[in-house]
Design a binder for these strands. Structure first.
Lengths: 152, 152
DNA sequence: TCACATTTAATTGTTCGCAATTGAATAAGC
DNA sequence: GCTTATTCAATTGCGAACAATTAAATGTGA
């Protein structure tokens, strides 16, 4: 019965990359919170707005593929954005199964107010841009490998 | 009015490390799901069990500090673990404000059944151990810098 | 045309995650 | 002893996140 060295024990919390990622995601969320409160957005709502600022008038499905989220998450979230007058939901006339999401004037305008958010996050990261880009690319590559396993 | 190159635009979704972390956390969760279903645990419940397998008979507060979660999250989660007969919640006699969490025999036994989980995750990551350790350390360092900003 | 599969959103129910509040227990100072 | 502040857990309410189901629209093949 070998006594495992805790620094190598794969069952130890601090040795798990998934917990590192999980807890880092929460840390990001907490840093974003006060910034996004001023915009009246939650972090997932902010992600949806980022997608729409790149291109709007898109079906819910497209937003979900971009963010890896399903309609069970997006439908109520989008209804809240609609209630906040940031987006408009319209059923497509070409394919009535689709609901198209378009920005309102307010939704477009919010992009300017949100312009300072990324640099605030960068400052909080206390890290060079190039280091962050490298890490981001590594994490994305890991995420894509994980997602590949899920679809078998 | 300069047209920003999208590969440099900080407001672009794919340029944001936080989205990389956020989406990687979800990807991990999806990989864990089938593995943890067999143990009857969710991922946050699994994290709590990891903490308790290292040391149990600890107050809720300690678990929260380890996982960066508060009692609003942990109280109902621990009640579900208690309902599953994996932990016992007892109010401390020394300080009656504290609730001590101890593993049951079933809770201890589950550690063996969970032993194969980390290696399944490693396989899904499709990545060398040393690469993962390096990434983990970088992500933890980033997380800790973010958490440092939150407390001002 | 008709039957059947596929696509797409919406809905329902369970679990996290956190802010804000409540309430109880403890500690500190007078 | 009394007041006050602090600590800690529980509670409440809201917003994700996802599985599973439902329902409608579309496409396909016989």
């Amino acid at each position: 019965m070998p006594r495992k060295l805790s620094t190598l024990d794969p069952q130890r919390l601090d040795n798990q990359i998934c917990f590192a990622v999980y807890s880092a995601a929460h840390a990001f969320n907490r840093v974003y919170k006060p910034l996004l409160d001023r915009l009246g957005l939650t972090y997932p709502q902010y992600l949806v707005m980022l997608v729409l600022w790149e291109r709007d008038d898109v079906p819910v499905k497209d937003i979900g593929e971009r963010l890896f989220l399903d309609s069970g998450t997006l439908t109520p979230l989008l209804k809240r954005l609609e209630a906040a007058h940031l987006v408009k939901r319209t059923r497509s006339s070409e394919d009535e199964r689709q609901v198209l999401i378009a920005l309102t004037a307010q939704g477009h305008a919010l992009k300017e107010k949100a312009r300072s958010v990324p640099q605030s996050i960068l400052a909080a990261s206390d890290c060079s841009v190039s280091e962050l880009v490298t890490m981001k690319d590594e994490i994305v590559a890991l995420r894509d490998r994980l997602n590949a396993v899920i679809g078998e």
